[in-house]
Each structure stands twice: as C-alpha cells, then as structure tokens.
Simulated scan of single mutants.
Amino acid sequence: MTNPGTILMGDGDAIKASCNEMDRLPVDWDLSDKQVEPVRKYQTTLKESATISGPGTFMGKAMRTISFEPTKQEGWWLDRTDLPHTLPIRVGIANVWTTGQIVSNIVLRSGNPHNYVRMVEHIVSLRMGMGIDNMMIKIDSGDPPLFEQGSLDLVEALDQCGKVTTDKPVPYVTVKEPVTVGGTYGDFVTLAPPDDLDNPQLTVDCAINFKTAIGQQRIKFPVCEELTRMASIARTNTSLAKVVYCATIGRIFADVRHLGYNTKNVSIAGKRRYMNEPRLIHEGKALEAAWHRAVLDLLAAIALINNGLFIGKITSYKAGHRLDCELVRQLYLNQVLVPLEELKK
C-alpha cells in the first residue's frame, strides 16, 4: 500500500484517494527483483569528449549541437557557447526557471536572462542512471537537439566518452520518512527512504492514466544503467488533439509554429489507437509512455537535487514536470533531505 507520509503540498484527502486509486492498478512490467550493482563509492567524470548534433526542439529547421566534456567541478553544468560572457548553468532546482506553458518542459536559467536552456529533462535525467557525476555540457543555443530515438543518441554519445573515477566520495541523500506533494488533477509524487540500508538503491513505481490510447500504465524498477539505456528510446508522447491544435490555432505562437516534432520523434495517441508505431512493448502492451515518464521526465527532476544523489523509493501517479519540480523545491524548503549515512546510525 502506498504510504504518503508527510504531506508537503496538496490536499491530504485527495492524495490518499489517489494513492488508493494507484494501488488498484495492476503492474504491467515489474522489474523490482532485478539485481543491480551496489551504489558507487567514488564520483566519476568523462574520460573524453563527444559531440552530437540534431534538429532543434523548438526550431526544427535549425541544427543544434551538444558536446559532453569532462570537468573538475562537481555536478552537471550547461554552458551556452553562443553566450561567451555568461557562466555555466548548474543543473539544480535553484536554477529552474519554468516548466513551460504550451509545451511542457523543464527550463534552466542562471544570471543573464538570456542564459537559459529549454527541454533539458531528456539530457539531465541521464545523471541518475548513467553513473556520471560530473560533466560539462556545451550547447550552441538554448534549444537542444531533438532525436528520433528519444535520448538513445545521447546515451551512445556518453558511451563514446567513457568514464574515469575520481578520489571524491559520492554524497548520497534520502528522506527519513515518506513525503508527498499532490497536484490538482489527482496527481502525486512520494519519496521514501530505501527499504534496505545495507544495500540501498533508487527504485521507481510509476503509473500514468490518460484518456487516450495510452490509457493506464504502471511499471516498477530499480534505477540502473541497463534500464536507463533501454528506456532512453522512449519518445515524448502527445495526443492527436494536441497535434491538430499545433497545426491550427497553435501556429500563432512562435514556439509551436517552429516545433521540431514529427511522427518519428514523438509518440502520437488518438482516442482508441496510436497514430504511429509505439515502442517498448511488453506482453503485448505498449509501455513507451510510462518509461518516458519514469526515466526521462521524473528522474530529470530528481537529478535537480544537487547536494547529493537521491537514494530511496519514488512513487509517482499522473504527475508531470510542474509537480516534479515542486516536489524537489519542497524538499529544500522543508529541509527534509538528509545524508544517507544518517539513517544508518
């Protein structure tokens, strides 16, 4: 049974009702028992650099380039090479500017108001699953490239770089008891401490519920490099209604008019069927939307915890970027994050 614990934001009765609703959903793909490597003791950075290019996300006719580079600084950083007099943006909750209006996405900004990068979630989410603690990400605009293979191109670029281990220990953080934030649509996200303090892991129980062909989906898994790699091919999902909107009324907005989305790089769901071929099918059911939500969206918000890697249990139901980021903000506002070692005492 889902235990919401302390409510940091939202209506307690509504959250409990949603917990009960999620508990009634069957688990479509349960990988809870998968054996994964013990948590790392020392921080890593890249061994070499790698560069990758693709059409822009918000400016689809323009080519955008990202370079992954080693760094001696702790954390992940975004460096706008087209703004040479600005400092790199640290990946962290303090630098979240917005989660988008028309197009839902996480936007990071620091210092100069022009020093921002949009749609960062599909990049920074990899901090949680690829075993890379410190990295400089150089990008030639605030509009990252969009790929037909989801984030797999980024994963393969990181593979080219390789990793080196430093002498700095990895700081791990968690919560002492379950904490929850709830939204206004029956959505919630809960963080809880790990079950096994002798072999602590980061685990996810994620469920979605759409009024389209996506329907109800629920997956459970431990966060690890193998599953991150598998899930990275999952694309952003959208509804056929939103596609029609973007092609008509939405064209009055520049962000929509120039979007790089197409039938290959997004999953489109109508009321009763998908408009293009879905991915990540398990036992006859397409779970692309659930894997995208869990690995490339939800974990992107957890990656915004920048004073340590979070270890524990994440439960998410019907949530999105806005609630994800509010969760992380509330963790700091309520000062509930603690070093993992504190629970072992």
Rank of each mutant, 00 (worst) to 15 (best):
W76P: 03
L83T: 05
Q101K: 09
W97L: 15
T81Q: 08
R109W: 02
E121I: 07
A94H: 05
L83V: 05
V120T: 15
H85E: 02
P88M: 13
M119Y: 14
D79K: 12
Y116C: 08
I102S: 13
V96P: 02
L87D: 12
R118I: 07
G92V: 06
I93E: 06
D79Q: 00
R80Q: 14
W77P: 00
K72V: 13
L78D: 07
W76Y: 04
R118P: 05
E74N: 15
T98R: 12
H114N: 14
G100D: 04
D82M: 06
Q73L: 15
V103C: 09
T86A: 12
G100I: 01
V124P: 13
T81K: 07
I123K: 03
T98Y: 01
A94G: 01
H114M: 06
V117D: 10
W76K: 12
D82I: 04
T99F: 04
Y116P: 09
Y116V: 04
N112P: 03
N95I: 07
E121Q: 11
I89N: 03
E121Y: 01
Y116A: 10
R90Y: 01
V117T: 10
G111D: 07
H114C: 13
N112C: 09
S104A: 07
L108Q: 02
R90A: 05
G111K: 06
V91D: 04
T86V: 09
L108N: 00
